[in-house]
């Protein structure tokens, strides 16, 4: 059994809205509900740890009732950084295996979660090829990266909780910051992390334009799937 850790602590600054993006409406329902409904459907997940700001726990609790989310949901407090939020979520999780997902990625499908869970390795991530050219540099080009060797790291990801917690504690002691957990685990534990093919529909809602693109993805990719 897995504990799902759903990261919902973002403030949505880049979205330039008064409400964080995970509570904006996408296809008529709050962004966070898209992920909660998928997690609720998965038999392999026994609990959902929602990591959010304290002020939003009442809002989420109300949404859970309105949308008839049956699975056990517990809350962990969002940290100052994404890394701290994951750490807080890990400490709340009861199961030895965790799936980390973020509320700002509402288009991960049941099939994506199932393929991730079915991966042979204990630790795995969804990844997708990079279709555009990536170079190094700031004001001037410093180097060329071979995109055939690069992967766009997506969520959800799955981990052994004890391995990931251990890596987080090392990162905390050393004051090292990572933007996601597969990199953190690989850096400290050199763990075998499997890459499961993701999808270019599984976008992260970051900027205002993403909400417009999201409406199209929902209509063509999610609503028509049945």
């Amino acid at each position: 059994m897995y504990s799902a850790i759903l990261l919902a602590g973002g403030k949505g600054t880049r979205m330039q809205k008064s409400v964080p993006k995970q509570y904006l409406l996408l296809a008529g329902k709050p962004v966070i509900i898209h992920s909660l409904e998928r997690l609720d459907e998965l038999d392999e997940i026994s609990e959902i740890v929602v990591v959010c700001e304290r002020e939003y726990t009442a809002t989420i609790t109300q949404l859970l009732t309105q949308y008839n989310i049956a699975k056990e949901v517990v809350f962990a407090l969002a940290g100052q950084t994404r890394q701290e939020s994951v750490y807080n979520g890990l400490k709340k999780a009861k199961n030895s295996m965790v799936i980390i997902h973020e509320a700002a990625r509402p288009f991960a499908t049941i099939n994506d979660f199932k393929r991730l869970i079915a991966a042979n390795s204990e630790n795995a991530l969804l990844g997708y090829s990079i279709p555009y050219t990536v170079v190094e540099g700031d004001k001037k080009l410093d180097g060329i990266l071979d995109r055939s060797k690069l992967i766009n790291v997506q969520l959800p990801q799955k981990f052994s909780k004890s391995e990931l917690l251990q890596a987080h504690e090392k990162a905390f002691r050393e004051g090292c910051k990572f933007t996601e957990d597969a990199s953190l685990l690989f850096y400290y534990e050199k763990s075998n992390i499997e890459i499961v093919e993701g999808s270019n529909y599984n976008i992260k809602l970051t900027e205002a334009l993403d909400m417009l693109i999201g409406e199209i993805i929902y209509k063509e990719y999610i609503a028509r799937r049945r």
């Binding site: 296809a27 008529g28 329902k29 929902y218 999610i222 609503a223 028509r224 799937r225 049945r226």
Partner: peptide, 8 residues
Amino acid sequence: TEELAEYG
């Protein structure tokens, strides 16, 4: 119809 399509 649109809102509930996702759930089948």
